[in-house]
Amino acid sequence: NKGIGGFMMIKNFKASEKIGDIVARFPKAAEVFKIYNIDFCCGGDRPLSQAIEEQKLNQKEILERLEEQYGTLRSMELEDVDFRKLSMTELIDHILNTHHVFVKTELPRISDLITKILRVHSVEHGQTLSQVHKLFGSLRMEMEQHLIKEEEILFPKIKEYEQNPSDQLLAEIISVMEETENEHDGAGDLIKSLRTVTNDFNAPSNSCASFVLTYKRLEEFESDLFQHIHLENNILFPRIKA
């Protein structure tokens, strides 16, 4: 079954996760936790399930609300939302709460799937899957470093500039921005190579369910990545340059 935007319906949040980790991965989760008076600051090192149990809350309801928030943000891209009309801060928050969350969630899941099918199908498809494993490993490393650079350096500087513009801050932003644009090109090249190696993400005939699922998830990752890059390269960055 497909969910929003053709993405497979997968659970993005688990009660076993630490509260602080959930908010770090999906900042808008903080709004949900505030509703239920769940401490995500000083109490962020606890599993969500512990807070739910202590406060006698409804676990299913909270997890569903988290999924709903995530789904609402992602559905923005299906509607006629003109991202050019959002403030730079609003656009950045959208990128963080949808695309960054998706990447952080999917990188380890896809990596595990690729390792699994390489182990099981190394005899008949070893050459292809070894290439897939290597390419995705490079993509994962680049994306993890890229997200950190955006979250810790680039995006905070852009938000600050929108509130208090200065020539010095603008020069710093443009310097980092050029680096991230080059990283976008590198990530785009890697995902295109993955498409080529996997025959456009088509699993071999008579493949097992895990093989088919892995290729499907890679295709969905490609779709999200291209939209992610589009919002930055074609909308956010040109506004800084202008």
Rank of each mutant, 00 (worst) to 15 (best):
V212Q: 01
V176Y: 07
R65V: 12
L170T: 04
N164K: 10
R84S: 15
F136C: 06
L66N: 09
Q127G: 01
E31Q: 14
C41F: 03
K18C: 02
L107D: 02
G43H: 04
S175M: 00
T72G: 06
F237C: 02
A29I: 08
S49C: 02
L194I: 03
E150C: 07
N12I: 11
E219N: 15
N58H: 09
G3N: 06
S49V: 03
M9K: 15
M8T: 15
I158W: 12
S175Q: 02
L225M: 14
D224I: 15
M76W: 07
I117A: 11
P27N: 05
A203I: 09
G188T: 01
I110H: 01
D21K: 15
I10P: 00
T89S: 10
I158L: 06
M76P: 03
V176H: 04
R119N: 14
R239D: 09
V81L: 13
I95K: 06
D39R: 11
M76L: 08
S49Q: 06
K11E: 15
M177L: 07
K241F: 01
E77N: 09
H121K: 13
K18I: 08
S210T: 11
K11V: 14
M141E: 08
E178Y: 04
K11N: 13
N233D: 10
N202V: 01
I95V: 13
E61A: 02
K85M: 08
A203H: 02
E183T: 10
M76K: 12
H99G: 05
K116D: 15
I235Q: 05
L231P: 14
D39Q: 04
R25E: 00
H99V: 09
G43R: 12
E68H: 14
Y161T: 07
A171N: 12
F221N: 09
F136N: 08
T214P: 01
L231D: 11
K149G: 05
V23M: 00
S75I: 08
M8W: 05
I173V: 04
K28C: 00
R217G: 01
E106D: 12
H133T: 03
G20R: 13
Q127C: 04
F136T: 06
A203G: 09
E31R: 14
A209V: 05
A51G: 13
V23H: 02
K2R: 12
F226W: 15
D93W: 10
T180G: 05
G188C: 05
T105I: 03
F237D: 02
H100T: 05
V81Q: 15
H146E: 08
D189G: 10
I158R: 07
E17W: 14
L91G: 11
S75Y: 12
E162S: 03
C42N: 07
